[in-house]
Computed example of a mutant assay.
Amino acid sequence: MQPPSPAPVLVTGASSGIGAAIAREYARRGVPLVLTARRGERLRALAAELAPRVACEVLVADLARPGAAAHVHAALGERGIRVGGLVNNAGYGVPGDYLTPSWARHADFLQVMVTATCELTWRLLPDIRAGGQGRILNVASFAALVPGAAGQTLYAGAKSFLVRFSESLALENRRHGVRVCALCPGFTRSEFHDVTGTRALVSQLPRWMWLDADAVARAGVDGVERGRTVVVPGLPYKALRAAIRLLPEAVLHTAMARGSRRIRDAG
């Protein structure tokens, strides 16, 4: 008798970068997928790529819109899909001084990074619990684990929230068989910095600070499957995290201020 097929995993922000890499990693493991993002053409291309391995559904949605999470949930119901896992990956950065962008741009950012993540998790959690082996992977950032840098006023805060949210959610849902993990990668090769317009600045960083998106995805999926609550991919970042825990807060803030200034001056 063959084991039952795994329930689908929904991946937000699946059209590129870490989101697409996580979708490919799940497909490699034979897990069906629901892919969602704003860019329908890219989603359909990825679904076609993965279709020989697993069933893929595409849901085009812009999570910056307040009703998007409810729309995604309703669309799953209409298609008769009950997900067993969720990857909250959709996100981006708003570069520059806090007062430079309009509040409308900040509000869209918070809607995608915090509100939509929480609402989508809340709406899908009953189905994820029902299977008894649910998984939730929240893509945070190494920025959540260090003092905030200039130009990351909301980004670091939102990612820090994701880590704490994941930790609490993991404790609350352990008895339901649901594993929750915050993935905290450092600088990762993807389109992220092209979209935010910071490619020239981050290109000044040494090569050892850059991670491969496929390796990050593998670390995240492995981590949530093993019941890890926080995963930091890459030996250099693991070492940095250990060092940060030992350094006085004043030293860390001084180092972050100097590092931010050096990157800005290099640009």
Rank of each mutant, 00 (worst) to 15 (best):
S168C: 14
G220W: 03
R218V: 09
W103S: 07
L169A: 00
V224S: 01
L145G: 06
C56N: 02
A156I: 02
S160D: 10
T115W: 14
T229Y: 01
R135A: 12
H193R: 02
A116Q: 01
T121R: 04
P6G: 02
Y237P: 01
R245W: 12
A144M: 11
A104L: 13
A239R: 11
D127W: 13
P233N: 12
G91V: 09
N89G: 06
Q2D: 13
Y98I: 12
G30L: 13
V112N: 09
P4G: 03
G267R: 05
A68P: 02
D214Y: 03
T117Q: 07
A140I: 04
L162T: 04
A70L: 11
L43D: 12
D97F: 12
R175I: 02
A7Y: 12
G259F: 11
L137T: 05
G134W: 01
T100P: 00
T198Y: 04
R164C: 09
R42M: 06
G134Y: 09
P66R: 07
V180A: 07
A242P: 05
D97W: 05
A213G: 11
C184L: 09
V114E: 15
R228N: 01
A20M: 10
P3V: 06
H193S: 05
L246Q: 10
L50Y: 01
L169R: 05
T196S: 15
W210R: 02
L110I: 10
I128D: 08
V72E: 01
R258H: 10
V202S: 03
G19F: 11
P248G: 11
V34W: 10
V146L: 12
A140Q: 00
A68S: 06
S190M: 10
A144S: 04
V202C: 04
A55Y: 10
T121F: 10
W210Y: 08
R38V: 11
G13H: 00
C118H: 13
G157K: 01
I244L: 15
L99V: 09
R38W: 13
L120H: 03
T100Q: 13
Q111R: 14
A51V: 06
R174C: 01
H193V: 00
S166H: 00
Y155N: 00
N173E: 15
I136Y: 13
V34H: 08
A140N: 08
R135V: 11
V94N: 02
V94R: 04
D212L: 11
V54T: 02
L46E: 14
T198F: 07
A239C: 15
S160K: 10
L33V: 10
L246D: 05
T121A: 10
R79G: 03
R218M: 08
A74Q: 13
I128M: 10
A107P: 07
G80D: 08
L125P: 08
M256I: 08
P52L: 12
D222S: 06
G84S: 03
P8K: 00
S5Q: 15
G151D: 11
V231H: 06
V195I: 15
G93N: 12
R262K: 04
T115K: 03
V216G: 08
R39P: 07
L252G: 00
G227W: 09
S141C: 01
A243L: 15
A217T: 02
A37T: 02
L43G: 08
S15I: 09
G234Q: 10
L145R: 04
R261Q: 13
A250W: 11
T153C: 07
V251P: 03
L50T: 00
L240Y: 02
I81V: 13
R129E: 14
E41L: 11
T229R: 15
